[in-house]
Design a protein around this nucleic acid. Structure first.
Ligand SMILES: [Mn+2]
Ligand SMILES: [Mn+2]
Ligand SMILES: [Mn+2]
Ligand SMILES: [Mn+2]
Lengths: 218, 218
DNA sequence: ACAAATTTTTAGATTTGTCTAAAATTAATT
DNA sequence: AATTAATTTTAGACAAATCTAAAAATTTGT
């Protein structure tokens, strides 16, 4: 598989997670910052290799083989991200770009050894689950901070938006995975939240809250 | 720079080390397992980018920029090899192939951090020197075991041939970097050597001896 | 239901990197 | 010095991955 094919497969996987619908050509093009005509070309190649199901004008979805392939790339991406943070002292907003390159390195032994070096981590620095060798992974029980009622809360376990901009904002405001967050009050006017985070009180906008995952309450 | 351009630059560097001559098109083609016509095409592109000096039919040599580029790739290659051996328990015959991929990852921060993680190693697992950030490196004083007279010797510090075949042979026969080797006798007939290695006596062919470096005697 | 808007695909061109076959140049031998 | 041999370059083709512009199919709005 070429690097480009792998990137398409990964994108189709991520877009496919959302709904149960087929993935649209334009959606792929937009996410990959490429043109729809290029996407169509590539989809045909991937279809030829039995990585995707494709009927003209009807969108695309991953085959079992495509799914397995995607999970393998995502496994590599997330393991490298853990490596960069844990072993090379990268911050969580710096890892993605480099992991985009490292995810394409081909060596089973390499990735297995890396997994062992990192003590078989189950989640990446943004709280996303790391598939195991066979592509299996458990989506952690979690919900968006914006969805929980007043006076409840939990431990921050992930971010929905993992852009460098958002992650740096969180750093600046002392919000990190592992923090205990409790919702004190929700403003009627704009939906902003007064929260208590590791004892400290602060106010965050609705947009922020809707990009923070906390461990689900029982 | 593309991956292919980087591989050509690296090959030209290695071929250029040997003699003071310009590097021949055919030599590049042979080492890279490609066709001379492809080499000519690429040389033109590299020349356009001021990475090589090129006059038709007259061979090719690296410019200062090309040399700097080559040393940077080699630095990455060798640091990754150390990483694979030291941190991921690869054997020295397994690292090269993966390092060929890893050497093309683009991130200064990554390679600097890796260097620090490994405690700034000066030599790779095969005894080859690792250039520093500015491309500077000192070739270690060493000589081939086949060149030293009877009754002398030294510490094994490197291999000339670092093919998996040769390295596995050395493993099988308990020869490794750091071993003390002394030449006991040289057979007139075929040039094979009786040596003492870390106290143990054994016989090796001239070909083996001419691919083992030992620390130079004063 | 039909026209308009949107989405998707095709057609044709471009860049990178490769190849084969043929021509040009240089090197080696008589 | 002339012929032969080896090396190197050109010419033309091809696959991968991309683009623009135009055509086809689908979806939406009235
Ligand atoms: Mn990422
Ligand atoms: Mn990628
Ligand atoms: Mn190597
Ligand atoms: Mn390489």
């Amino acid at each position: 598989m070429t690097r480009s094919e792998e990137n398409y497969i990964k994108t189709i996987f991520h877009l496919g997670r959302k709904g149960t619908q087929e993935v649209a050509t334009n959606a792929i093009a937009e996410l990959m910052e490429t043109k729809p005509s290029s996407v169509t070309d590539m989809i045909k190649r991937l279809s030829e290799k039995d990585l995707v199901n494709y009927k003209r004008y009807q969108g695309v979805s991953l085959t079992d083989l495509g799914n397995k392939t995607a999970l393998n790339i995502i496994r590599k991406h997330r393991l490298w991200e853990v490596f960069l943070v844990e072993k090379l002292d990268f911050s969580w907003d710096e890892v993605h770009e480099v992991a985009e390159q490292l995810e394409h390195i081909k060596s089973d032994k390499l990735i297995d050894s890396l997994d062992r070096l990192l003590a078989f981590p189950k989640f990446d620095p943004h709280g996303d689950p790391i598939p195991d060798k066979n592509g299996g992974f458990k989506e952690r029980d979690r919900e968006l901070l914006s969805e929980v009622p007043v006076n409840t809360g939990g431990v921050c376990v992930g971010v929905k938006d993992s852009s460098a901009t958002f992650l740096k904002f969180l750093d600046k405001n002392g919000i990190a995975l592992g923090n205990r967050i409790k919702v004190i009050e929700i403003e009627e006017f704009d939906g902003s939240l007064n929260i208590e985070i590791d004892g400290r009180k602060m106010q965050i906008s609705h947009v922020i809250a809707s990009n923070l995952y906390i461990k689900a309450r029982e």
